[in-house]
Simulated scan of single mutants.
Amino acid sequence: MPNKQVILVVFLLAFCLSTFAQEDKKKDKKKNENNIPTEELVVEAGSIIQDPIDPLAPARAAFYSAVLPGLGQAYNKKYWKIPIVYAGLGVSVYFYINNNNEYHRYRDAYKRRLAGFEDDEFFGTVTTSGLREAQKTYSRNREISLLVTIGIYALNIIDANVDAHLLQYNVDDKLSLRPHYKINEMDNVGDLGLTLNYKF
């Protein structure tokens, strides 16, 4: 069984690396009508030529982050987020392991007390009811740590997906969203809102 898991992980990593290589080749081949690489932003007569929108980029970034946390951030070229992802996962996993170990320490001592032994490490300092309460506390903390770990892993995937969407956000001068404030002359009350403008 462990051999199958190792083969699966190696296959997934090879697939991800081959996908990266194919993406680089596609970007090199893409040229616009004037033979200018589409990766560059070129200003011509007040308009901006942008990269073509890749609708699969957000899904691809989310998939990479699901396979290996931080890989989607690397795909989006947001390398500074990778240490944050691993720091969050590392801290939450550390607390999960610590709470799990403490839970088993108190549980073993509690079981020995119930069996009639009085040689556990907490004898004389912690009562039997105290051992039971400590088990409940560490069990709850362990579950919270597990939920936090799962939450950080999910946030890593969501962040990669949303970031890939935002990288393709239209920043053309023709499209603008501006706040506005206007005094209503009828009842002398200020109106606050957002105005969406598109120039043809």
Score class of each variant (00 low, 15 high):
2 P>S: 11
2 P>R: 03
3 N>V: 09
6 V>R: 10
7 I>M: 14
8 L>Y: 08
9 V>F: 10
9 V>I: 13
22 Q>A: 13
25 K>E: 15
29 K>S: 15
29 K>P: 13
30 K>D: 14
31 K>M: 15
33 E>Q: 14
34 N>G: 14
40 E>A: 12
40 E>Q: 12
43 V>R: 10
48 I>N: 13
51 D>M: 11
53 I>T: 08
55 P>M: 01
55 P>C: 02
56 L>I: 05
56 L>W: 05
57 A>T: 07
60 R>A: 07
61 A>I: 00
62 A>C: 04
66 A>I: 04
66 A>K: 02
66 A>L: 09
66 A>Q: 06
70 G>I: 03
72 G>N: 06
73 Q>Y: 07
75 Y>V: 13
75 Y>K: 08
75 Y>E: 13
77 K>A: 15
77 K>T: 11
78 K>L: 11
78 K>Q: 11
82 I>F: 01
83 P>Y: 01
84 I>K: 00
86 Y>D: 00
89 L>F: 03
90 G>D: 05
92 S>I: 01
92 S>N: 07
95 F>Y: 12
98 N>A: 09
101 N>I: 00
104 H>M: 04
105 R>A: 08
106 Y>L: 11
107 R>V: 15
110 Y>E: 08
113 R>F: 06
114 L>N: 09
115 A>Q: 10
116 G>T: 11
116 G>I: 07
117 F>N: 11
117 F>H: 13
117 F>S: 13
118 E>D: 14
118 E>N: 12
120 D>Y: 05
122 F>P: 03
123 F>N: 10
124 G>V: 10
124 G>I: 13
126 V>N: 02
126 V>M: 05
127 T>L: 10
128 T>V: 14
130 G>M: 08
132 R>D: 05
133 E>C: 01
134 A>E: 00
138 Y>M: 06
141 N>Q: 07
141 N>F: 01
143 E>S: 01
145 S>A: 06
146 L>W: 01
146 L>E: 02
147 L>R: 00
147 L>P: 00
148 V>D: 02
148 V>H: 03
150 I>W: 02
151 G>Y: 05
152 I>S: 00
154 A>G: 07
155 L>M: 11
155 L>D: 04
156 N>T: 08
156 N>C: 10
164 A>K: 01
165 H>R: 06
169 Y>E: 09
170 N>F: 08
171 V>C: 07
175 L>Q: 15
175 L>F: 14
176 S>P: 15
178 R>H: 06
179 P>M: 07
183 I>K: 12
185 E>C: 09
187 D>Y: 08
188 N>L: 09
188 N>V: 14
191 D>G: 01
193 G>P: 03
195 T>K: 02
195 T>L: 05
195 T>H: 03
197 N>G: 12
198 Y>R: 03
